[in-house]
Simulated assay, not measured.
Amino acid sequence: MLLLADKVVFLTGGTEGIGFECAKVYQRAGANLCIISNDPRSISHAKLQLSEGITEFVLADVSSSREVRYAIMHCLEIFGKIDVIHNNAGISNPSKALHETSDEEWHKLFEVNVGGIYHTTFHGIDALKKSGGNILNTGSLVGEIGQEIHAAYTATKGAVNALTKSMALDYAPFGIRVNAVAPAGVITPLLRAWSQQQPDPDSAEAYLNNIHALGYCPEGDVIADACLFLISDMARFVTGCILPVSGGAELGYKKLSSKQNHFHDL
């Protein structure tokens, strides 16, 4: 039996990285997808690989309430309902200490990483109340343990953790579950390219492997499998959970040497 048969998933940031892996897994599990992205090129690429399923793409920026409202309305017009909102879209730049972070950089991170959740919930909660659906947020392990030279980014992910728990309490009376996944390092095309640009790519790869107790940095599919569990009825009594999908990295995040740069999940 397909875990998401006849379900409609509203997925932000679903055309690349972890979000794209989620889109593929959700589609194989029987879901109809409404994928939101602000990148026309990545939408075109994703269309080619997700052509077999029932998938709708919407060009929209999650930091814009107006654009998210349009995306939610479009999804409802096409599919008639929304069963899951997966807030995956996010940004990570800049890699700076707090005093080096500009006002513009600070606000942009919060507008996307936290504001996106606000916008999809504000405009989509009525649909979830009707369907008895659930919400999944893509967080990060660094929202719990912190990370050097990523103050603003980790602040947004810490906010996602707290927001997830508060939302779980607020929407439990409606039968709506709210959870989050918290990856550590995740190999995506963007992170591969970034690593190859470093002075010592071999050391970069070793670092990414070594921060995980299981000894390797995973592909995005391992995160997608955990996400599938959380949005499916298999997790029907799970809410307010911040699920580490981190290979044990939270048991002791190793520090980089001063000659290396700093990594985050991408």
Rank of each mutant, 00 (worst) to 15 (best):
V25C: 14
L98S: 14
G19D: 03
I117L: 02
A235Q: 06
F174K: 08
V238S: 12
I36Q: 06
E104F: 09
K129V: 07
A235E: 06
F263P: 01
E144A: 09
L243N: 10
L141I: 15
W194A: 13
V178A: 02
Q49P: 00
Y153P: 00
N179V: 01
I18E: 07
P40H: 03
K96Y: 08
S140D: 10
Q196T: 12
E144V: 09
H74W: 04
V114R: 05
A182Q: 14
F20V: 06
N137S: 12
Y253E: 09
V114T: 12
S195H: 03
A226K: 06
Y70E: 13
F110I: 03
S232T: 10
L109I: 00
I43Q: 06
F263S: 01
A162V: 15
D200Y: 12
L191E: 08
D103I: 00
T12Y: 06
L251G: 12
D61S: 14
N38D: 13
T138K: 06
T138I: 11
G146Y: 07
V222C: 01
G248C: 09
E104R: 10
S232W: 08
A60E: 08
I78Q: 10
T188M: 07
E144P: 01
L33Q: 03
A162T: 15
G80T: 15
F10C: 04
G132A: 15
F237Q: 14
G13S: 03
A29W: 04
L228W: 02
I125Q: 03
H45E: 14
G139L: 01
N210E: 12
L251W: 12
R177K: 13
V142L: 12
S42G: 00
A46M: 03
E77C: 11
N210K: 14
D83V: 00
I54R: 15
D6K: 14
L243V: 11
C75W: 10
P189L: 11
N93F: 11
Q147S: 14
V114F: 08
F79T: 11
L208E: 01
E100V: 05
P94F: 04
T55S: 12
K157T: 05
K157F: 12
